[in-house]
Design a protein around this nucleic acid. Structure first.
Lengths: 202, 202
DNA sequence: CGTGAGTTTGACCAGATGGTCAAATCAAGA
DNA sequence: TCTTGATTTGACCATCTGGTCAAACTCACG
């Protein structure tokens, strides 16, 4: 195991390569379906060498998830209580949809974990995520109280945004099987935009 | 392997027990994460005995998926071109949501498969599912042409229904982590109902 | 009851998989 | 250049896992 001094050039490069490879493999096969050999091969390292940088498969997975959680929640963080309500929400949705488009592996990584009961991130859900959502739904509720947007169950409003945007990354195969050559996101963006404009208009 | 005559009493009982156990295990851990021993134990059989009824793990999975596909698509099948457009769509949505509530294991079984690229049901998606969706979106399009419901991209309308309803089964842990004790479906039903009333009203 | 088909199982196997270790190789600063 | 810590690897191990098989047991029916 590398000592915990300042990471060397090689350590930086290899750790990054491992996490990148792990993202590919874990998002495509889930934790149990991924093998250390596969990750090592994809990172261009031998298995013992990979295990020199991370003590176990579990450790790689954990590092990956916790490293990406911030990225994943960033769009919601940006929701600003002082902005225009409709614009704030719609641009949150656009950011979420863009993440599904540009970071589908990350979306599927979390989806895999969640579908199987989130054994490894249950804590983060009940703490960080819950806190963030509570903070932001308070803003939504205030906007509703002020009559700026339609009154709706704020938690379910958030769930609906997650569901509609992440669906395109998580169930990509299904979407494409039905749409054929059409780009999913070309149609999704205006559709979702229209949906929320109608829904949120008081 | 049992001969393919009329199945005996014991064959019926054991096959059913195996599929029930397999549904539990596959939906909770995915194909790769499930073990034959686990399924056998949960079905109350020894592993060799289980493999007397199904030739392989793969075969159990396939039997399960193809057996459930009809159930899974039934709500959409019922969408009736001759009914009242708004009522037809809303009751389709209610049926879908009810399935998420009552058959969450089935939902997660498919979710697991889809998130990982649907290696085992890709064909069914491109054939059966695609055909059914095409048939039903034709009805939706006609209703739009007649001005009975708002004009929207019909495929994305269907995707949105799947996303919003299945989200509650597939990502149950996350939803519950945020809602706490509140029953997810109590809030989801009126929310989704309101959403589609607003969205579909021309 | 006898019998043959249907059912069940303990013992076993081969390959996959996560992980270890000592030895070899490499890199960078003194 | 030399030394020392960082890096890499081949060989290896224990366990898990899907699957096999022959022998034993059970059941239904004549």
């Amino acid at each position: 195991m590398p000592k915990d001094r300042a990471p060397t050039r090689i350590q930086k490069k290899n750790r990054a390569a491992i996490l990148e490879a792990a993202l590919n493999v874990f998002s495509a096969h889930g934790f149990r379906g991924a093998t250390v050999d596969q990750i090592a091969a994809e990172a261009g390292l031998s298995k013992p060498n990979l295990l020199y940088y991370f003590p176990s498969k579990e450790a790689i997975h954990t590092a990956l998830l916790s490293g990406l959680l911030d990225t994943w929640l960033a769009p919601l963080h940006e929701l600003d209580a002082d902005g225009d309500p409709m614009e704030e929400i719609l641009s949150y949705i656009r950011r979420k949809l863009q993440m599904s488009r540009e970071l589908p592996r990350e979306s599927r990584l979390f989806a895999n974990e969640l579908v199987q009961g989130a054994p490894r991130i249950h804590e983060a859900l009940s703490n960080d995520l819950k806190a963030l959502v509570d903070e932001k739904t308070a803003i939504l509720t205030q906007w509703m109280d002020e009559g700026k947007i339609a009154r709706l169950h704020p938690y379910h409003l958030v769930f609906s945004i997650w569901a509609l945007t992440q669906h395109y990354a998580d169930f990509d195969v299904q979407v494409r099987a039905i749409l054929g050559d059409e780009d999913p996101f070309d149609g999704a963006e205006p559709f979702i935009d229209t949906l929320y404009r109608k829904l949120l208009t008081p």
